[in-house]
Design a protein around this nucleic acid. Structure first.
Lengths: 219, 219
DNA sequence: GCTTTGTTCTAGCGTACACTAGAAAATGTT
DNA sequence: AACATTTTCTAGTGTACGCTAGAACAAAGC
């Protein structure tokens, strides 16, 4: 049966999910070009050809993984900010967003990581197909930072784009060095990052220690 | 003639350099697995087989590109810090290092960029062959940050590893969004980043505007 | 001019890739 | 039990990869 025709969800959605998980894992660890259909199929004890029953091409599969990655991050950030109530302090909102993004990228499994680690190395066609989601998530951050800037609480001598990129760069790099077995939970890393980014590295009287918290379970 | 035997440098070193440049470019733009010998050869109007006269394997070529990338960054940072004199203020040294690394990664061509963008997606054998250079450069930063920390000028409630990773993450992400034709030079970006990282994003009376300077020529 | 040495070429090997065709096996449904 | 549907398999296609062998061309010394 053609994948196009199949609309009523069936038991095979479970297999589909296993394929997506395996694809996210190899994408996050080996990169786009280093990810082969055969490797994905092998890791879930399947023949590579069988995979084409569930996805019409490698790129379609990859795209769904990447899309999921952005969506997960976006939802995590939105939820964290919403949890602060109707009119949150813009700096509190920014801080919450930073922690949420760090937790997504470090603790929510391979999807957000696959996204971050393949950024800039994808074939043009995939990039453009993915653009709209990427842009929407970018807008979330643009709004957060511009709100904080407009409130006068952020320094006015930097442009907001540089600020946004500083934040996302520092956080998106975290998967390169973060060790899940270490002493810091993803949330701990997020809170440390937020403190350093917002208040700076310099010692001041105002700086307060960041509490370490118990680690939640990752996806 | 075997590459091993050839020790007296010849005219072909020019070709060798062109190959390295081409390899750095495709590595920076397409990633390790997306970089083929044929694509490199094509971009300099050569047959792929001819390339093996100059390099014994793809991995040997890639390794030399990556090594060059680290060395260029390291030299730039060391030079910038040394230029401050014998006993520089540790915060000034940190600031100078940040600017130098930004300039390397954004303005010194494809080598440092190739390094940064393939980090974490390389086959294990290449990673371990590259490890020693990476470690040495890491040590430069560790020393800078620990000196600043020991001076008491940095906040004592964060660990130095998180600080180092914040800095390098923010800077290494810059190639993903920086547009060379834009209004900011690599040095401008570096100075903005340094100011935000060191002093933080919050508005304070102490924050001073960062002067924009004329852009030097890249590599 | 001839030989030696250095550099690039043509041709091809074996392997891995994304993907297809169609047979076989499960899995319902009646 | 018989049938229809869904899922996975075996077997293969064409193409691109890294790399090798050895001929062809180029440059330099004598």
């Amino acid at each position: 049966m053609k994948a196009e025709t199949r609309r009523l969800t069936r038991k095979s959605d479970h297999t589909r999910q296993r394929i997506l998980d395996a694809a996210a894992s190899t994408l996050a660890n080996r990169g786009y070009a280093g990810t082969s259909i055969k490797a994905i199929a092998d890791s879930i004890d399947m023949q590579d050809a069988s995979l084409y029953y569930h996805f019409e091409s490698k790129d379609a599969l990859v795209l769904e993984v990447l899309r999921t990655g952005v969506v997960l991050s976006e939802e995590a950030v939105n939820a964290a900010v919403s949890a602060l109530g109707e009119q949150p302090d813009p700096i509190d909102a920014l801080r919450a967003a930073i922690v949420a993004h760090a937790e997504a990228v470090l603790g929510m499994g391979d999807y957000p990581r696959a996204n971050v680690r393949n950024f800039g190395q994808l074939p043009q066609e995939i990039v453009s197909a993915q653009m709209s989601h990427q842009r929407r998530y970018g807008k979330v951050w643009r709004n957060l930072i511009e709100a904080a800037m407009a409130s006068g609480r952020l320094r006015q001598d930097m442009n907001t784009r540089a600020m946004r990129m500083l934040i996302l760069g520092a956080l998106n790099w975290a998967p390169e060095w973060y060790k899940p077995r270490g002493e810091l939970s993803p949330g701990d890393v997020g809170r440390q990052m937020a403190a350093m980014i917002i208040e700076g590295l310099l010692a001041t009287g105002a700086a307060q220690p960041v509490r370490r918290q118990k680690q939640g379970n990752g996806r």
